[in-house]
């Protein structure tokens, strides 16, 4: 019934054969082609739309449209490949080769080449061409476009718009285009969570377009007076003012 030392055969076989382990990392490992090792980005086609960073489960990817950078925390990335699935321009890929181990977490930053400057314009519609087919709204990765077929309205939320141009490329009537801004007229916008209501911006404003009240904690912009110079943003000690394209 019970056998005495039945494993001896296997052990002796192992002893007189080559070991199965290798001297990794001195002998590099060969990975199959499907191995999900690390995420690679093609910055030439990347639009910095930020969909990857929004869908990343561990939030390892950061996209900054102001500095034109796409960055990834290699050690936070779990190599799930969801960003690759989500990328509208297919500029992300997940390839073999694991990130090198390191003593500290660091951010890998990729810059968008200067030559391919981003189009910072707005999506505009030519309503005479539009047939309200809603294809643009369906293609929009960030649900910025709302189209109502019955009421014949086409609306875009410019704050939500990522300027990925997916709608422009997919419009069957070529009714959409991204119009480049001339000089770029921008209004200041303050992040009131950070604002300390120091009134410095109001003092620096050459057009006196800003009214800031410390007592009632209000920050108000007179859009008609604003010349969009950006002096307020430049002088804000908290850096809470950003220049955004005018909403209309």
């Amino acid at each position: 019934m019970a056998k005495f030392l039945p494993f001896t055969g296997t052990v002796l076989h192992n002893l007189f054969h080559k070991p199965v382990t290798t001297s990794y990392p001195f002998v590099p490992k060969e990975y199959p082609e499907r191995t999900r090792g690390h995420v690679e980005v093609d910055m030439e086609t990347c639009l910095l739309c930020g969909l990857c960073s929004k869908s990343c489960p561990p939030r390892a990817i950061h996209v900054d449209r102001d500095t034109h950078t796409w960055s990834i925390h290699r050690f936070d990335c779990v190599q799930c490949g969801y960003c690759v699935q989500k990328c509208p321009k297919h500029c992300l890929s997940i390839v073999p080769g694991y990130p090198e181990p390191g003593a500290e977490k660091k951010l890998d930053i990729y810059h968008k080449p200067e030559a391919i400057e981003m189009k910072m314009g707005q999506v505009t519609v030519d309503l005479s061409k539009c047939v309200y087919c809603t294809l643009c709204a369906k293609k929009c990765p960030n649900e910025a476009i709302t189209v109502d077929r019955a009421a014949k309205t086409w609306e875009i939320d410019h704050h939500k718009c990522l300027r990925c141009s997916l709608c422009v490329n997919n419009c069957p009537r070529h009714a959409l285009e991204i119009r480049e801004e001339e000089g770029g007229f921008k209004h200041p916008q303050a992040d009131l969570n950070q604002c300390v209501f120091c009134t410095l911006c109001a003092k620096k404003c050459p057009a006196s377009a800003l009214t800031v009240d410390r007592a009632t904690k209000t920050w108000k912009l007179n859009e008609k007076e604003c010349v969009g110079c950006g002096a307020c943003a430049e002088h804000c000690p908290k850096g809470c003012i950003t220049m955004r394209p005018a909403s209309t």
Partner: peptide
């Protein structure tokens, strides 16, 4: 070393 080789390891 012997144990490792018996287990199929380099050791």
């Amino acid at each position: 070393k012997l144990s490792a080789r018996m287990q199929g390891r380099t050791g």
